[in-house]
Structures are given as C-alpha cells and as structure tokens.
C-alpha cells in the first residue's frame, strides 16, 4: 500500500477483513508470514509498529463510564504523549469532529454516530501514519454514514494513509482509491473501483427468474436496454456497481449465469481501457453477443 492511499477491503462477513486488521494492529497473533507497517515489522518491532497506526474497531470500545475527554486523555497517555500535546490535540480533534462542547459528557450519553466520531478522534490523537477503520459505518443510519464518509475523506486529504474494511458496496465505491475483493480469506482482485467495475461492463439489467434475481452486464446503456426489452419482462436498468464486479469475480451468484458470463467475456476480450473510444457499432456487436446468450438460455 503506498502512503496516502485509501485502500479498502471489500468482502462478505467472514471473508477475513477484520482478522487482517486485528493482525496488523496487534490484537491477533500472526501465525505465518510477515507484515510491516511503515517499515516496522509487526512481530519483531511490535511496539514501534503500533505507534504507526490508529485503530477504529468495528464495535464501540470506549469507556462508557468516563467522559469523552477522559477517554481521549487515556489514549494519549497510552501513546506516550506529553500533557501539553494531549491537551492541544484533544482540543484540536474535538473541534475537527465537531464535538468540542461534548468533551465533558459521559460516553454513555452519546448516540451511536457520535461515539463513532469520538473513536475516530481517538484513533487520530497520536497522529498515526496509517488509520485502520474496521467497518466504520456499520449500524449507522444513512445521514450519519455520509458525515462519517466526509470525515474519512478529510482525514485522507490531510495525508493519512487509510486502510478500511467494509461490506457496504457504496462505501468502498465512494471512498476507496483501490479496492481488494476478499473472499474466504483470499484476495480475488485488487484495482481501482472504476477498473473493477469496467471489468464487468458499464450498464446492468436485473430481472426476476424462478431462482431469484438475475443480472446481465453490458458495455452501453443502449445495449442493456435492447437486451432487456427483447428478453425480459419487468427488468430494471442501472449502472454497474462494485457488487456486480465482486459477484462476477467470486462466481458466487452471477458466474452461474450464461448470459452474464458471455457479457463478461466479451468485455474482457476487448479490454476495458479506452472503452469510451469504441465506435457505437462496436457496442452493438457486444450487446448482440450478450443478447444471443440470453436468447439461448
């Protein structure tokens, strides 16, 4: 991971996202292999490695009987910060997360979204080089999620490298510079969200079959529209998202579909770079191929 990047692990529950973070931050033992944070081996130089990172775990782990300020102060002490730098950083970060007036509130009096913000402030207190965010918006409502997202973007702009895990498609799509698809403990693909999605196509249609929801992907809106209109009643047309890319790569749901497979093959045969330069006729051929697949099905 290059410095300053926002890198996301995307995968279903149990794929190994949290375990990765737990190993890198010293919560779980590394049983095989090596890992280093900013050049510090997490096993041989555990203490130095831990200094590099800030961690926002999935579950709230603040001391609820203590105030926001006290929670942050203890964290600063744990990271060896002096009294004056603790005071100054706590002040600055509470302002940053817009919670300065709540410094003396007990944590148990805060809402879930506010607690999450306090945890982010706590993780940033000692000015880490890498920030680990484990499912930072799990269980939060949409409005608060957006606020946390802009906070995360802001942190990255200030030069912090961010490693994020999520099982929310939109989260990875919106935030990440690069995304790794994780499935059963294995990375199946790493690329920018745009490239990953382009690997599937640009437009998708969904329709219902006896087996449930089925999707097919197309390089252009017209092709998708045409295919849908020809073969399916009550299809929906939409832009391809990361979930489509994930499902087609892990082969769990979409991979079984012939039509979809044809669409993906057609796509990758032509490559996804410079897709916009294709002549409209080229798109037509694509769509025809994909459609033929559907028809046969």
């Amino acid at each position: 991971m290059p410095a300053g990047e926002l890198f996301a692990y995307l995968g279903p529950n149990g794929a190994g996202k949290t375990t990765t973070i737990r190993i890198l931050t010293g919560l779980t033992r590394l049983t095989a292999g090596t890992a280093a944070l900013n050049g510090h081996d997490i096993k041989a130089a555990a203490v130095a490695a831990k200094r590099q990172c800030g961690l926002v775990p999935q579950h709230v782990n603040l001391d609820s009987e203590l105030t926001v300020g006290e929670n942050l102060d203890i964290h600063g002490r744990l990271f060896g910060m002096s009294a004056s730098s603790r005071k100054q950083r706590i002040d600055a970060l509470l302002t940053y997360i817009e919670l300065r007036d709540r410094a003396d509130s007990l944590v148990k009096q805060l809402s879930g979204g506010l607690k999450r913000r306090v945890m982010i402030a706590r993780a940033l207190l000692h000015d880490p080089r890498i920030l680990f965010l484990d499912e930072p918006t799990v269980g939060l409502d949409a409005g608060i999620r957006r606020r946390i997202w802009s906070l995360i973007k802001k942190i990255q702009k200030n030069g912090t490298t961010i490693f994020l895990t999520t099982h929310y498609i939109e989260e990875a799509e919106f935030l990440a510079d690069r995304v790794a698809f994780l499935d059963g403990g294995q990375i199946v693909a790493v690329d920018t969200p745009t490239n990953l999605m382009a690997g599937v196509g640009h437009w998708a249609i969904d329709w219902m079959t006896d087996d449930g929801m089925t999707s097919a992907y197309f390089p252009s809106r017209e092709a998708a529209q045409a295919s849908g209109a020809a073969g399916h009643n009550g299809f929906t047309l939409r832009r391809v998202n990361l979930e489509d890319a994930f499902l087609s790569l892990t082969g769990k749901k979409v991979g079984a579909q012939e039509g979809a497979a044809a669409a993906i093959q057609g796509q990758s045969a032509h490559g996804h770079q410079g897709h916009g330069n294709h002549a409209p006729g080229g798109h037509g051929t694509h769509a025809a191929k994909a459609h033929a697949g559907h028809g046969a099905h």
């Binding site: 010293g26 831990k50 579950h59 782990n61 203890i74 964290h75 990271f79």
Partner: peptide, 14 residues
C-alpha cells in the same frame, strides 16, 4: 463486554 482491552492491546505499551 466493552472490548476496552483492545485499546491496551493496540497501544505501544509493554
């Protein structure tokens, strides 16, 4: 229950 122990585990302390 509170998972606060993780704060200590992730901190650079011996």
């Amino acid at each position: 229950y509170w998972y606060i122990f993780e704060e200590f585990q992730a901190a650079p302390i011996r």
